[in-house]
């Protein structure tokens, strides 16, 4: 178990814990992983010379939900399901006074993606620029990916009974558009691009934040090597909002929008 209590993990997590399925160190669901030869090929990104990645400047995000609705509109995401979601976290500053952290969350496009490792059907794989993708000719809705994802980034479509997650809007990139969320963000908190291109906005920003020591990743103990970095500082660091991010076996749910959920966990 990771440091969150069974209660906090929610129904799905509690079920897993209760059924005694082995979880590795820090809650990594090694038990779900297929033998390596099952996923070795799928873990290898196509040789397109690109390394797609994200920088999320959570200091800038003001929680407008533009990215999430853009994503719903782009991908016809059904009500109650979410490919991305912005988390709100109200807290008291150490020096006094209230503040709100707002963090847009989605698939981290891990280099060492546990969802790919867990998929028994061969649907999850690396696509363009290393994006973690799903092959819908293959996906059977087995949901091991969802159980393995340490960031709650996958949901099972209720009709297709197939897994759905962020696909980096490769269909937009191919025609020269940015991902729908990044394109709309009015606070300029979302940066997507090719990390192999040192001139891309995302590379430059990443380098700058790295120099400033302001780069952080979510749940590094999961050893997933996420392709998403968060800008954070001492007032707005990941440890504060991390408990609000869903984990293994969970998906983003509508309740996180409820004003009753913005407060600090009590």
């Amino acid at each position: 178990m990771d440091r969150r209590s069974v209660l906090e993990l929610g129904a799905a997590g509690a079920l897993l814990a209760a059924t005694g399925q082995a979880q590795g160190k820090q809650g990594v669901r090694h038990d779900l992983f297929q033998p390596e030869e099952h996923y070795r090929e799928r873990m290898r990104a196509p040789a397109d010379g690109k390394r797609y990645g994200w920088v999320v400047d959570a200091r800038r995000c003001f929680g407008c939900h533009g990215c999430e609705v853009a994503c719903k509109a782009e991908n016809d995401v059904p009500l109650g399901k979410y490919i991305r979601q912005t988390i709100y976290h109200d807290y008291e500053k150490p020096q006094g006074g209230m503040a709100r952290l707002m963090v847009p969350m989605a698939c981290q496009h891990c280099e060492d993606a546990p969802c790919i490792k867990a998929c028994p059907c061969g649907a999850l794989h690396k696509g363009a620029g290393g994006s973690v993708q799903i092959d819908y000719d293959v996906c059977s809705g087995y949901a091991a990916c969802k159980d393995a994802c340490p960031y709650g980034a996958i949901y099972i479509d209720p009709v297709a009974n197939q897994a759905v997650k962020c696909h980096n809007c490769t269909h937009r990139i191919d025609v020269g558009l940015e991902p729908a969320c990044a394109a709309t963000c009015p606070s300029e908190a979302l940066y997507f691009g090719d990390l192999n291109d040192p001139e891309s906005r995302v590379s430059k920003l990443k380098a700058k934040l790295e120099r400033e020591g302001a780069l952080a990743q979510l749940r590094p103990e999961k050893e997933t090597k996420p392709r998403m970095w968060f800008a954070s500082d001492k007032h707005r660091n990941i440890a504060q909002w991390e408990p609000k991010v869903p984990g293994e076996g969970q998906s983003y749910g509508p309740d996180s929008y409820s004003v009753y959920r913005w407060k600090e966990p009590r």
Binding site: C121, A123, V138
Partner: peptide
């Protein structure tokens, strides 16, 4: 054993595992 190959988005290519998975699906 389900060996998938590398695919880019929406390729729709058939894979060795597809037939079996159809059942599951």
């Amino acid at each position: 054993g389900t060996l998938g190959s590398c695919r880019s988005t929406g390729s729709g290519k058939s894979t060795p595992s597809r037939e079996k998975n159809l059942e599951v699906w």
